[in-house]
Design a protein around this nucleic acid. Structure first.
Length: 306
DNA sequence: AATGGAACCAACCGCCTTTAT
DNA sequence: GATAAAGGCGGTTGGTTCCAT
């Protein structure tokens, strides 16, 4: 049994919206709300399908839409969330107020994806590409992968810190950073992260699980492979590089699979500073996105870059 | 100035999930 | 439980603009 078309397409206009159409749509929604999208075009006097009206409203006419170019900070968030969520544009958009899924999708396809590719990063896996085209330019260190995982763990740790700080110090509410991570953690993003971390089948749509070879792979890797590294690194920064290297060199993923992410996180939080990744600067191979290291050779370039 | 390719982005299409009956 | 309608989402397309030659 075929699905009925969303609307009768005879006589309906397609293509770009005119200012007059926009005006009609905005005026109607401001007065009555959108109600049923199916019946809206008729009521608003538009020769458009309801779906088209909904899209025009949500992607362009909504008053809270933030237009204009993405800030470096926004781009960074998109990249980080994409590493966790994959192509779940709506979920990513929910973390960027005023930005639409369509906008983020376009940003990704036209800018960020190419930028990562040019840096030798596979935009789907966020790992160094193995293609012949890029492999020769890459530092062939496994630690690049670890840095992606590290960044994911950092996200989680910061979210936890934010949540705890809010519980302990109510006055911290309103601080943008804490607010952001609290929101993130309590949102679908955080839920996805937690589910993946626990090895659960994420979301009922099956979309996540269908594409989770990337996500669950990298994320479970975050908590497992990071285990001994973070555990050992609870000592001092001086030792961290050694532990990091030792962890990379020696860790057998099977054996590490059992490592508790709780303890890992705790140890992460025990770091002198969660944001201080300066100990990585001394080694040219420690970096998530090698393109950033041509100048500064610093993980901070990734953290602050874009 | 003309032109061809690249880049950008709004909009469409089809599939999936949710909700109502 | 079965079915249809509606909404939502991600992939893709096609028109427009920009830029190099």
């Amino acid at each position: 049994m075929g699905r009925a078309p969303c609307c009768d397409k005879k006589g309906l206009k397609k293509g770009p919206w005119t200012p007059e159409e926009d005006e009609k749509l905005v005026e109607y929604i401001n007065k009555h709300g959108h109600g049923s999208w199916r019946s809206l075009p008729k009521l608003a006097g538009l020769l458009r399908c309801g779906k088209s009206c909904r899209l025009r409203w949500t992607n362009y006419l909504r008053p809270d839409i933030k237009r204009g170019p993405f800030s470096p900070e926004e781009e960074k968030v998109v990249i980080q969330l994409h590493a966790i969520l994959g192509n779940r544009w709506a979920a990513i958009a929910s973390q960027l107020p005023g930005r639409t899924d369509n906008e983020i999708k376009n940003l990704w396809n036209t800018h960020l994806r190419k930028r990562l590719l040019s840096m030798g990063i596979d935009p789907q896996t966020h790992k160094p590409s193995t293609s012949n085209e890029t492999i020769n330019r890459l530092p062939s260190s496994p630690s690049t992968r670890h840095m992606a995982q590290w960044e994911s763990a950092r996200l989680e740790a910061e979210a936890r810190l934010s949540r705890e700080s809010l519980l302990l110090v109510p006055s911290s509410i309103g601080k943008p950073e804490a607010d952001y991570f609290l929101r993130l953690w309590n949102s679908e993003v955080g839920e996805t992260f937690r589910m993946l971390k626990n090895g659960e089948k994420a979301d009922s749509q099956g979309k996540l699980s269908s594409s989770s070879s990337t996500k669950s792979g990298s994320l479970s890797g975050t908590t497992t492979e990071m285990g001994p590294i973070a555990a050992d690194s609870s000592n001092q920064n001086d030792d961290t590089r050694c532990y990091l290297k030792a962890g990379i060199d020696s860790c057998s993923s099977n054996e590490l699979e059992e490592e508790s992410s709780e303890s890992t996180l705790q140890l992460l939080l025990d770091f002198p500073s969660n944001n201080d990744m300066s100990f990585l600067e001394h080694n040219d191979c420690y970096g998530l996105y090698p393109g950033f290291y041509t100048e500064s050779c610093s993980y901070n370039a990734y953290k602050n870059g874009f």
